[in-house]
Amino acid sequence: MKAIITVVGQDQVGIVAAVSKTLSDLKINITDISQTLMHGSFTMMLMGEWDEKNTAFAAAQDALNDLGEHLHLDIRIQRQELFDAIQKL
């Protein structure tokens, strides 16, 4: 399973660490990562890949939602096929 995880919100110490830790706990491998500050807002995009036998999509979504609430960040996880369908011929 491949998914794109986007993290947007107020910059603070430890966002990358917290998100990476959560993904690691979920056995989700990070295959690509980019991060920037846009108008003072923290924006990060990650591509994650994992075996659905180890972690169900819903479980990953719940864990990231919890983390987002805890850190006051907007964290989305979406299957990568959506982006491929819309952006690639």
Binding site: T6, M45, M47, R76, L82
Partner: peptide
Amino acid sequence: METRQIQETIQMI
């Protein structure tokens, strides 16, 4: 995939 394309897709939604 480019960051811009990901952003555009999310913005559309």
